[in-house]
């Protein structure tokens, strides 16, 4: 983290050149990196989630099959949704730490720090 702003400095001490930043190659790379993770991950979790109500709703005989003791596919699949959510959140956080570094480098290029 960079040095904090002093409380006296006005919030918009220099209006950033939004257009220049948006056309910067590093900014475009940052946005496309985010989308490359977020779009497929979103499609994945939506499909994975709705597979559960579709499964128990229309394929109950398959979902009722016992896997271990009295535990059936329906229960284990529902439980797996929690781990799916946690794993995707973990992947996102790890990727986002990389985006943060790129973001700092990008802002530094335009003379800002991450506190601006």
């Amino acid at each position: 983290m960079s040095t904090p702003l002093s409380p006296s400095s006005p919030p918009d001490h220099s209006q950033p050149d939004w257009d220049a930043i948006s056309r910067d190659v590093d900014f475009k790379a940052l946005v496309s990196r985010k989308l490359k993770l977020v779009v497929p991950a979103t499609i994945f979790f939506v499909v994975y989630y709705f597979a559960l109500p579709v499964g128990v709703g229309w394929f109950p005989d398959f979902m009722k099959q016992k896997v271990w003791g009295n535990l059936n596919i329906a229960y284990l699949f529902a439980l797996s949704q929690f781990f799916m959510a946690w794993v995707l959140a973990f992947i996102y956080v790890v990727a986002a730490a990389g985006w943060d570094r790129r973001e700092h480098a990008l802002l530094a290029k335009f003379g800002f720090n991450s506190r601006d």
Binding site: S22, F27, L30, V31, L106, F112, S114
Partner: peptide
């Protein structure tokens, strides 16, 4: 829109 994109993705401002 450009400004919102930059703000949303970088936290600038």
């Amino acid at each position: 829109f450009t400004e919102l994109q930059v703000r949303a993705n970088t936290g600038l401002g």
